[in-house]
Structures are given as structure tokens and as C-alpha cells.
Computed example of a mutant assay.
Amino acid sequence: MTQTSAHATPHSSAATPAPQPPLIEVTDLQVHFPVRAGILFDHQVAAVRAVDGLSFSLHRGEVLGLVGESGCGKSTTGRAVARLERPTAGSIRLDGTDISRLRGTELRRVRRRVQMIFQDPFASLNPRMTIGQLVGEPLGVHRLVAKDERPVRVAELLRTVGLDPASVSRYPHEFSGGQRQRIGIARALAVEPEVIVADEPISALDVSIQAQVVNLLADLRAAYGLAFLFIAHDLAVVRHVSDRVAVMYLGKIVELADRDDLYAHALHPYTQALLSAVPVPDPVVEQHREQIILHGDVPSPMSPPSGCRFRTRCWKAQEVCAEVEPPLVELATRHWTACHFPDVT
């Protein structure tokens, strides 16, 4: 299943312009991690099905939010799109070219176009390298700037993310968490990418700093036309930054829609439960609204339930849910849901 979006634009003639092809198109993506046992005769006994057949598209300049509980496969999906994980099956097309099996020089070219911002800004920075070296390293790896010109470019990148260029000789431990994340953003920007995979980029930061980093990413999107795959578990933040939102559960997308449509009328029970847990900044409304409590734990990705994977925690589950896996289908305009009993009223 492949989704495409048709953003209408004003045109002088009556003809409607054809929709632009997606920049990234993911089809039936699977990322499985083998579980091995044995000493003398090592062999695979099972597999963790972290990502187990999902499809989505990302257009130029778009922000696609990817949300779900911890362990649902969000980060693995992002790492696969950035080709830090090799897919087990499926395809990842960048401008029509499948990048899922590329290696060597061809893969290096792709990584210049798709960069990643990591969740932990300290763990993602080499503590033995100065900030100038960290931000300047991609320029040398991809041979974008002559060595004697790199300090100028590094200073420009640091200014772009709101850091003092005079700090190039300092080390990561000398900066705060928010400043370290800005360094990671500057490093990602160094190669002039088209897509940035942001893997929970604010979850490790103080609340007072989170808004600053979110606003910085929004400014960079506007200035450079960047597309973002924005991975998060904070639905309030995702609503603020995203154009579309995909909801994941146990390795699969269960709902995908335009942001406002999804938040106003979620069709899947799991999405409804997630949204009911988001606080409302109105004490009267918050006091009287119903919160959906999910019972039980998330099943193991080594042995997911048959049929619908959410059925073990779903209050709507019936016999068919255990027998048939619901496909992800378009039930409303640009609104896809994988559920046998969606809330379409």
C-alpha cells in the first residue's frame, strides 16, 4: 500500500496540475533482528520483528510525524530510512531509486541526502572531538569544502543553529543538553540534506529547552525546504510540527492521516486511546472528558498476536480480529486506517 498526497495549488487554467511524486516512498518495509542460540552450533531460533510491513511516503518540504508507544518500531523505521539499519525486506525509494540494498560509494551519496538527528545528543557526539571537528567532519567525508575553507563553513553552521562560532575548540561535555542537540543539528545540516530523520530529538531535553529546538527545526524547514520524518511519543509536539501523522503499533502503521483530520476524528481505537491521554489545557474540559485506559502489556514483537496486533488490548475486538489482519485502507479522503471496526460515525 502506497500513499500519495495531492496538495492543490492555485492555477490560472482549469486543469489541475499533477501531484508531485514523493521524495521518499517506503513499501512493505520489514526490519527483523535474529535471535540466536547455541555455543558450538550457533543458529537462529527466532526473530524480533521490529518493523513488519509498513508503507508510507514523504514529500519534499513535508513533515511526517511518526508516533506510538516505546518499542513499537518507530526508531528502527527511522534508522532504516536513513540506512543505518539494513531492511530485511521491502523497498525504500529516494526519488524513485531503491536505496534499501545500496552499499559503498552509492550508499555514501544517499547519506548526504538523508541525515539523522539522534535522541541522545551526548551519546551521538564523539567526546574526543571538538565541536569544530564534529561539525566539519562531514564536509571532509563528502568532499564538499576544501580543508582551508572548512572553518568558515563550520562557523556559518554554528551561527545557523544559534551557537557561538567561538566555541569550535570546546568539547561536547562543556555544553548543555540543548546546545549539544544544536551541534547535532548543525552536523546534519553540513552536507545540505533534503531529508532529516529526527528520532525523538527533544525527549532527552529539559522542558524549557524543548520549544526552542522545535522552533529551530521549523525555521530550518522554512529556510531550506527540508523534509522531516519526525519521530516522537509526545502527541502534542507532533501536532505542532507535522503535516501528516502516522500511528505505529507493534511494527505496523495502524492509522495515517492529515494532522488536523487525525486529531479531530481518529478512526482507530489505538489512536483514540493515545489522544485521550493527552492533557487538555482547560480544567473544565479535562475534568469531564473520558480517558481510555488500555489494559495489558504490549505483546512481544518476537511473537505478535494473530490477526490484528492490537486486539489483545482493544475493547472492540471480535472473533474476526484474531483471524484476519486488517489491511491499511483509505476510509476517508487521505485518511488510512487498519481496523475491522473503525469509528466512522
Rank of each mutant, 00 (worst) to 15 (best):
A6T: 02
H11T: 10
S12T: 07
A14T: 15
A15H: 14
Q20D: 13
P21H: 06
E25I: 04
E25M: 06
T27N: 13
L29R: 03
L29T: 03
L29Y: 03
V35I: 13
I39S: 12
V45A: 00
V45C: 04
A46M: 05
A47K: 13
V48T: 10
A50D: 08
A50H: 08
D52F: 02
L54A: 08
S57L: 01
L58D: 06
H59T: 11
R60W: 12
G61W: 13
V63E: 05
V63G: 01
G65E: 07
V67R: 06
G68S: 08
S70N: 06
R79S: 10
A80Y: 08
A80E: 04
R83C: 14
G90R: 06
S91Y: 11
I92K: 02
R93G: 05
R93Y: 07
D95H: 12
R101K: 14
R101M: 12
R101D: 15
R103E: 14
G104W: 09
L107S: 10
L107W: 09
L107E: 13
V110Q: 02
R111W: 04
Q119N: 09
P121Q: 00
A123M: 05
A123I: 02
S124P: 00
L125S: 07
L125V: 04
N126D: 13
R128M: 03
G132C: 01
V135A: 03
G136W: 00
H142K: 05
K147M: 10
D148K: 10
D148Q: 12
R150G: 12
R150F: 14
L157A: 02
T160W: 12
V161Y: 11
V161I: 03
L163Y: 11
D164T: 05
A166G: 14
V168I: 15
R170Q: 11
H173T: 07
E174P: 12
F175R: 00
S176Y: 14
S176P: 10
R180V: 07
Q181T: 09
R182H: 10
I183L: 02
G184S: 04
I185Q: 00
R187G: 07
L189P: 09
L189I: 06
V195G: 12
V197H: 07
D199A: 00
P201T: 01
S208Y: 13
S208R: 02
A222D: 13
A222E: 13
Y224F: 15
Y224T: 07
A227G: 09
F230M: 05
A232P: 10
R239N: 09
A246G: 09
K252I: 00
R259W: 12
H265T: 00
P269E: 06
T271C: 04
T271M: 00
A273W: 13
S276C: 02
S276I: 11
V278T: 03
V280G: 07
D282N: 10
D282T: 08
D282Q: 04
P283N: 09
R289F: 10
Q291L: 04
I292K: 01
H295Q: 15
G296L: 06
D297M: 05
D297I: 06
S300R: 05
S300E: 02
M302R: 14
G307D: 07
R309N: 09
R309P: 14
R311D: 08
R313C: 05
C314V: 03
A322H: 08
A322K: 03
E323L: 14
P327R: 00
L328K: 01
L331M: 08
A332T: 00
W336S: 02
T337V: 15
A338H: 11
H340R: 08
F341W: 13
V344K: 08
